[in-house]
Design a protein around this nucleic acid. Structure first.
Ligand SMILES: [Mn+2]
Ligand SMILES: [Mn+2]
Ligand SMILES: [Mn+2]
Ligand SMILES: [Mn+2]
Lengths: 233, 233
DNA sequence: CATAATTTTTAGTCATGGCTAAAAATTGTA
DNA sequence: TACAATTTTTAGCCATGACTAAAAATTATG
């Protein structure tokens, strides 16, 4: 009989649409509308290009756009963004775990694959990985239903001295930085002790697996940690 | 000092270029030039679209094109086609083996992924799979260097009666047909005995794992087999 | 508050890769 | 060989999604 969907409008979303929606989602972490310039810069495109796509996304009811004010995702747009992000992070983890690719290479690959995989492949990867919720950088993987965990903790730059911390998330995606962090053993779940903090945004002295390391302030800002409770019993 | 390549021209090949080259390779199995109409039909595009792309490929020295005569791959073009085909078939096998996707679904997925994966991912898949040379349908996987095995044997429609055969390759990619063949247990490497051949291109009576099956002539034309030597000792 | 600086939007261009319709070339047939 | 049918090419159109340059709106400053 009549179709049981509200308004099919078919899904003509291209990789370009998806990338813009993902960018808007990531830039709106604070809940504020996203400025056109921030969006354009994040995409690496001219401002006019962003304006152009934003208008299309608004027509598709994926964003709301008050001219000169900024862009915000609608529920539908957020749903799409989260699905793309789920693809991206599942793929990163899959490449790392199953294909043994180093954590500094998976981001670039996932940025291309995220637009291309089928639901069947998404599900197959999730199954093989045991329905994971965290990617190799500690980024939360949205669930199939669009739920996403908020990462707890704080930046290493504001961590207490002397306590045993646990690194839980690395915010940079830059291959060179990730490579460097890897060489220090700084992967998610690694225990870290902050020994000293040099003044004037100077380096931080860390202890990682018994080894002392001096880490640039700018790097430490990219590391999210929690305080490890002394494991009882 | 001077760059040590002949003519870099950088590689601006899009998925469209790659798909056309792959199509030309597959259609030229007999060594004959490929007609514009055959190419267009294979791609599912209008003839004018094929002419258009063929001209571009000729400018890039990937094909030779004598107007009204047909298209042929150059060595460079064949190299590209074989690399895309390697991607395609490696991906099919990987999806089937590692992600446990059924053999009737992997073709469509591979058709999208083949243009997107990096060399690193290609190599990682090949390594995990043990440098395979055959995909889930029995299609040969070109080597990294562009070598490809010729499939031995002949079509089931011209196989001898009563002998033990081995299915080595399934030529259709159609999901429904593959699904059906799978339900009969007709996967590559399966032993088969041809019991009877009905006249006028009628059905073939097969024995597969002890079970008798009647198979349409049109289906049998898609199955490549070899005669199994009586295993000595 | 007037004006300068910045941001955003509009207007118009371009390459890509489809399309249709018509012209040209080739091939088949009487 | 003449002419019809088929194939191929040409010509021109369109959507997508970049771009630049200029206009318009907003925000900052003296
Ligand atoms: Mn992307
Ligand atoms: Mn990540
Ligand atoms: Mn393809
Ligand atoms: Mn195959």
């Amino acid at each position: 009989m009549t179709k049981n969907y509200v308004h099919a409008t078919e899904n003509p979303l291209t990789p370009a649409h998806e990338d813009y929606l993902k960018a808007i989602y990531l830039l709106a972490a604070d809940g504020e509308p996203v400025s056109n310039s921030a969006l354009a810069q994040h995409m690496g495109f001219a401002a006019a290009s962003a304006t152009n796509m934003v208008k299309k996304l608004a027509e598709l009811h994926l964003v709301t756009h008050e001219p000169y004010r900024g862009v915000e995702l609608t529920d539908m747009g957020r749903q799409v963004a989260l699905e793309v992000l789920r693809h991206h992070r599942l793929i990163e983890l899959f490449l790392h775990e199953t294909l043994d690719m180093s954590w500094d290479r998976v981001h670039e690959e996932a940025d291309k694959l995220e637009h291309v995989i089928s639901e069947a492949m998404e599900d197959a990867m999730a199954a093989v990985l045991g329905n994971p919720t965290i990617d190799p950088h500690g980024d939360p993987i949205p669930s199939k239903e669009g739920h996403i965990d908020k990462t707890p903790g704080f930046l290493l730059t504001s961590a207490p001295i002397g306590e045993t911390l646990r690194l839980i998330r690395v915010l940079t995606q830059d291959p060179d930085r990730l490579c460097y962090l890897g060489s220090l053993g700084l992967y998610p779940d690694t225990p870290v002790i902050l020994r000293e903090r040099a003044p004037f945004n100077g380096p931080l002295l860390l202890e990682v697996q018994g080894q002392p390391h001096a880490l640039a302030f700018e790097m430490a800002e990219q590391l999210q940690v929690v305080v490890t409770e002394p494991t009882p019993a």
